[in-house]
Design a protein around this nucleic acid. Structure first.
Lengths: 236, 236
DNA sequence: CGCTAATTTGAGTGACTTCAAGCACAGTGG
DNA sequence: CCACTGTGCTTGAAGTCACTCAAATTAGCG
């Protein structure tokens, strides 16, 4: 089921293919085989950097397992987390397409396996397969729409509202386990870097949410107690 | 030079073609002719709405002249201006591609002429012309990159820094005339809706900039006196 | 090796400061 | 004359600073 190449076990694209949002779902079997054959694959531990803002990248990555955060570094080094990538998501493709330097840094949050695919392969696929091109374009448009929403939120909502919204977003992206606990573990600082606020503010607001019986906290585990309540606070 | 159709003078795409960032530059002459023939064209006065957030649009628009603002409506109706569109820019294509409702409203800021092109035409072009598909994808990626930058700025910079940055952005987008005056006329409220702040704050900060000899104000005309100074304030 | 000691990292609190929003009102000019 | 601009004043949300405490890592050492 899994081939061995470069003294390393490389997962087949087929595995990711199960993921419903998989970008390669419109490829012909031959095209997928090509991608599968050409790609490299590496394991990264939490904290590892996949690529860094401002560096040139000649290919893109597809997340096979684990979680990666994408962030920009603002003034005095403060991170602004733009999005997360999980199984089936691709990262770095923007830089390949627009032929620009990477505009974000991507760092592993949960131990991850990523496949690396040459930029040329992507360009070729776009030229050969219009359905794939459409798929990719829709992905970009979706991300663009989300970015625009986020701009509006961050410009107009309070920190409190935004934190509630981020919790809901995390719930949608990473789901809850059977105990309603968010299936992603972030530090308070990382949460702050998503919301765009100070770490202390996140800590204070989380305690407020806890006192208001909206959530429950055990370390980094966040249990959602009152989803409608959070939605109300988030204004959505 | 200009044909008459529907009792209305329709400018040829050739005119826009001169614009260097024109999206259609990779079309074959026949494809361009097709677009040119199929398109509709309308004149809009300042204040007119081209399309509205949440509405379905089945095609997209190409700005032939004038200026259009694209904004989202946030809580209690406050506008958040996402971007402007001027000659050669296309708007609404995102919704066509992702087959979603419009996520912004677009309203005319300076009397404008816009061409309307069917969504199908766009899809066909993408399928027939990979170079055009690449071009469009690069446009989307560029917008996405800018949106991500903006998220970081708005989350981390002060209103003062952001206002300076917006002035620089306006300068790059709409240029200065021979007297260093910004070639776009916005109300203080519109500026505030770009920066993501209150109108009063913009007014106060503009006066500060004026006192610091960075700019000069005559009504809505903004004259740039000290570009490096503004860049310094904007942190870039 | 195993068991403290030492250091680092993250969570949490309180006091203080400041930036910017909001309100009310006064011009002003197209 | 109404929409826009401009100003003063007040208040509150959120950032900053300074610190404690707990947990987790790493180092040290018999």
């Amino acid at each position: 089921m899994v081939g061995i190449k470069n003294n390393q076990s490389i997962p087949s694209c087929e595995e990711c293919h199960a993921t419903d949002h998989m970008i390669f779902k419109d490829l012909t079997p031959e095209q997928l085989d090509n991608v599968n054959y050409d790609k490299g694959c590496s394991f990264y531990k939490r904290g590892n950097i996949i690529f860094q803002e401002g560096h040139r990248i000649n290919g893109f990555y597809c997340v096979h397992s684990g979680i990666v955060k994408m962030y920009k570094t603002g003034i005095d080094g403060k991170e602004q987390i733009i999005r997360f990538a999980k199984k089936g998501d691709i990262i770095g493709y923007r830089s390949v397409l627009s032929n620009e330097l990477a505009c974000t840094t991507s760092r592993v949050i949960e131990d991850a396996t990523l496949c690396y695919i040459q930029g040329d392969t992507l360009i070729t696929l776009i030229k050969e397969n219009p359905a794939f091109a459409m798929q990719l374009m829709q992905l970009t448009c979706k991300e663009l729409g989300e970015a625009n929403n986020y701009i509006t939120d961050i410009a107009q909502k309070t920190v409190r509202e935004r934190l509630a919204e981020i919790l809901l977003l995390l719930k949608d992206t990473f789901d809850l386990d059977e105990n309603q606990v968010l299936q992603i573990s972030l530090t308070r600082e990382e949460l702050a870097n998503m919301v765009g606020t100070a770490t202390e503010s996140v800590i204070r607001l989380l305690s407020e949410f806890k006192q208001d019986k909206l959530i429950e906290l055990q370390g980094r585990k966040i249990k959602i107690l009152n989803l409608p309540g959070l939605k109300k606070i988030a204004n959505f």
